[in-house]
């Protein structure tokens, strides 16, 4: 077994995972250094989300190992992994999933309140984070009254408020327009850098990957160094069958 490098906060070796038989990851090894922003790129279906879920302890990999700060994650029980997610990890979904019954600040403060922080302190921290992400005015609105980009920013604030050690962002800007995409990403990366939060960012967007310190590319569940897709040929049988329907 190879020892974990000292600078790696999160480290995985030969991860293999299949969803009900369909292979998603086939022997992926990866190391995440402390404080860096690592982009995991690759086209859809290349196993980015599965990798992030394995790393964050949501899935237990069928083969391979995941280590966090010299602690094995792959051997932990569900309750320990749950506590690890709550205390040390942050997670951002591609779609903003907020609790629809709670207001924006309550949604943001939820991780702190779940850890047992008092209501007043949690509210103060949540309002500060919302202000920092330029949505302080929406603090008392419910998710249905927010714009999609504002919801995603609330999700970012919710992920950052607990100052996690590692933040997993699974295509955080997928549902957004380009301008909002850049804004959300910039706030996310700036906040992460200023607070020393390690970020693992799944993206299929080359522009997004540029913001990261390092990029790891996945293709069909394997780690590759460069993606050389075959040059798109002319559509087969195009002369006979037009696509312009």
């Amino acid at each position: 077994m190879v020892d974990q490098p000292d600078s790696d906060v999160l480290w995985a070796r030969a991860l293999t995972h299949a969803h009900n038989g369909s292979p998603a990851l086939r022997g992926v090894s990866i190391g995440v250094r402390e404080g860096e922003i690592l982009a995991v790129s690759g086209p859809r279906g290349s196993g980015k989300t599965t990798l992030l879920r394995c790393l964050s302890g949501q899935f237990r990999p069928q083969e391979g190992e995941v280590w966090f700060n010299s602690t094995p994650v792959h051997t932990m029980g569900p309750l320990t992994r749950e506590r690890l997610r709550r205390d040390r990890f942050g997670w951002i979904d591609p779609e903003p999933v907020l609790v629809p019954e709670l207001t924006a600040w309550e949604n943001t403060a939820l991780p702190l309140m779940l850890r047992g922080t008092g209501r007043r302190a949690a509210k103060k921290a949540a309002l500060e984070w919302l202000e920092r992400l330029d949505i302080g005015g929406c603090a008392r609105k419910r998710p249905y009254a927010l714009l999609h980009s504002e919801r995603q920013r609330v999700v970012v604030a919710r992920a950052l408020i607990g100052s996690p050690t590692v933040l997993f962002a699974d295509e955080p800007t997928a549902p957004l327009h380009r301008a909002e995409r850049a804004h959300v990403l910039r706030t996310l990366t700036t906040a992460a850098r200023s607070h020393g939060i390690t970020v693992v960012l799944a993206t299929h967007d080359a522009d997004t990957a540029e913001l990261a310190d390092r990029t790891v590319t996945l293709l069909d569940g394997r780690r590759v160094n460069t993606v050389h897709l075959p040059h798109a040929p002319e559509a087969e049988g195009r002369a006979a069958c037009s696509l312009s329907v």
Binding site: Q58, R83, R85, R86, W91, V97, V99, P111, L114
Partner: peptide, 11 residues
């Protein structure tokens, strides 16, 4: 929503 809360680590 419950699944999202579980992903957050809600016990």
């Amino acid at each position: 929503t419950t699944a999202a809360l579980v992903r957050l680590g809600a016990p």
